[in-house]
Design a binder for these strands. Structure first.
Lengths: 339, 339
DNA sequence: CTGTTAGCGCTTTCAG
DNA sequence: CTGAAAGCGCTAACAG
């Protein structure tokens, strides 16, 4: 590998000068500048950002610890985070948490060890036990993403309770009284809030809210499938289902398909999370669409602002989710489209 | 930030010893080991891998430059790459190319500057002009992924020509004689090979192979949509369509929907790339499914083996793709399922 | 406008 | 079984 010293030698200047012309940190004569650039060109010199970071005490990089390279919802968030970070001149380092506390700790640790200037984290259910305590021992700016887990930190997520309640209200307005819900990983704030919205929806409609029709889908397609099976095996099964997120929606559909149940003909379905292609295939899903891009963007903004001023008070932000009315709820075509 | 020196002081040993017990690079007495561990615990010490990498001349990290945090096909590949790398004790650094030569150069450069030990690249159409020449000036092991672009490098991708021909043959066997194709980014090896397969399919069926029914979808949903519009506006439009990849399939469907055309009733459709949910919604797409996980895994394996032995001759590997027969081709239920 | 020099935090001979 | 010391490649006073 060619180093700055090589370039300096070839350009007939000091490494200091080379460093300064590369970084534009101090004026240099036209002549030297040209000589340095030429030397860089000729040698194919490529700056070692590790050495640079070591000397500078900052890496110009941000870390994102999240579950779900496989989750289209998070893919959108990640893309937005990446774009916003790049735009601010920072590199994004990605680490997979698999929504598992141990793995999450590893991911977060890897990022800290790489000395990212700041960290974005979509906390797993067990974050309060491992990752978060660890982060408290490291003086590094952190913002929580998607899920809320610590009021002492900056957090961004979308509205969960009200939209879920809206979903239920919609099913009720279509005449349903037995409404089941497949819920995500226990302990996640998103799960908790969506369940709360579901129950509020039932109560608002004067329906029993005894949790009988709640099944744990663990935020996972396969588990959601089993959850639906359990629900449908009930003596008095639900006639409508609310799916807690996109992964589980797939599982729910698999379960229904296996039983030969048509949506919405035999059973109604509404879900949290939209799909890019939701309009194109049938059943066309009625969903709550989260502001994914906005979420990623906002999270980075919060982080960057804290990097500038670490003394800022912790901020918690909620972003609006959107009700998208399609066919899977089984409403007559003329059904109300909620705001 | 607490450093090794802090830990050493607190443990009453030298930094050398601390380094060795952390890395297990040389035996230490039970007593010292314990003291060091305790000191680490108490200080919340977190190793600075940048400094470590600088001293060691290797980062224990692999870089992946690819387009498409938004592409589910690549998401799978990325997940597999990540898993395989992690498994081998390496961290994965991700960079987005957007399939744009300039951006790709930046991505690759960023990775090299971070001194990744090896690099995986899904080359953009213009890679031969920018990224690849740049990489040749840097002595770093590279393996190409998904697309082929340089025989002098290791490359892994899936079979494209034969499967596409198979897709066409299938449509022919369903009785179609006007078969159009929406093709991906010009210049990509995958595009070239799939077009070749399409043409071979036509010729094998004794159909005209004048390229009249080929439309450029640029590997992008919106452009694919326009491409389909152009095709359908032809005096003698196709009765069946082949979509060159998953993004474009979405665009194709949008175009058909806008015209009120049903698949497969009004027009048949087959595509390259499977979708996780393809079985659950209608139309159920007949597709070629690529071995995504295998592809990512194999690419990392090639890279790791080259890291161990840089003198290995360049290898090019093709992975088998799978024909998945569903409904969108419009065959009678009893249709042949190709092997 | 440019160069000397002392680190940044870690690894690794070499010596004990 | 342990430590001193010389770098790894870069930045940033400080001095000129």
């Amino acid at each position: 590998m060619v180093t700055m010293a090589d370039v300096a030698r070839l350009a007939g200047v000091s490494v200091t000068t080379v460093s300064h012309v590369i970084n534009g940190t101090r004026p240099a004569s036209e002549r030297t500048t040209r000589a340095v650039r030429a030397a860089i060109e000729r040698t194919g010199y490529s700056q070692n950002v590790l050495a640079r970071a070591l000397a500078r005490q900052r890496t110009q990089s941000l870390g994102l610890a999240i579950s779900g390279l496989s989750n289209p919802y998070f893919s959108d968030v990640i893309a937005a985070v990446e774009a916003t970070a790049t735009n601010a001149g920072d590199t994004l380092l990605l680490a997979e948490t698999r929504d598992d506390p141990e793995q999450e700790l590893k991911a977060v640790r890897a990022l800290v060890e790489r000395r990212v200037d700041g960290l974005l984290l979509a906390p797993s259910p067990g974050a309060a036990e491992l990752a978060l305590p660890y982060l408290r021992t490291q003086e590094i700016p952190v913002v929580l993403l998607d899920r809320f887990a610590d009021d002492a930190l900056d957090q961004v997520g979308s509205e969960n309770e009200r939209p879920t309640q809206e979903l239920v209200a919609h099913l009720v307005s279509c005449g349903h009284t037995r409404i089941g819900m497949v819920v995500g990983i226990a302990g996640l704030s998103t799960t908790v809030e969506r369940v709360r919205g579901y129950r509020a929806g039932l109560r608002a409609a004067g329906l029993p809210d005894d949790g009988e029709l709640i099944a744990d889908g663990g935020s996972h397609a396969d588990r959601a499938r089993e959850a639906v099976d359990a629900l449908l095996d009930l003596p008095d099964p639900p006639t409508a289902l609310v799916s807690g997120n996109n992964h589980m929606t797939i599982g729910v559909l698999r379960a229904l398909k296996a039983r030969g149940l048509k949506v919405p003909g035999d059973i109604a379905l509404v879900a949290f999370d939209d799909f890019e292609w939701a309009d194109l295939f049938s059943p066309r899903l009625t969903v709550i669409a989260q502001p994914t891009a906005q979420l990623g963007e906002r999270a980075v903004e919060l982080l960057l602002s804290r990097l500038v001023d670490p003394s800022l008070p912790p901020r918690t932000e909620r972003l609006q989710a959107r009700f998208v009315h399609r066919d899977s709820c089984g409403c007559p075509a003329s059904a109300v489209v909620l705001p």
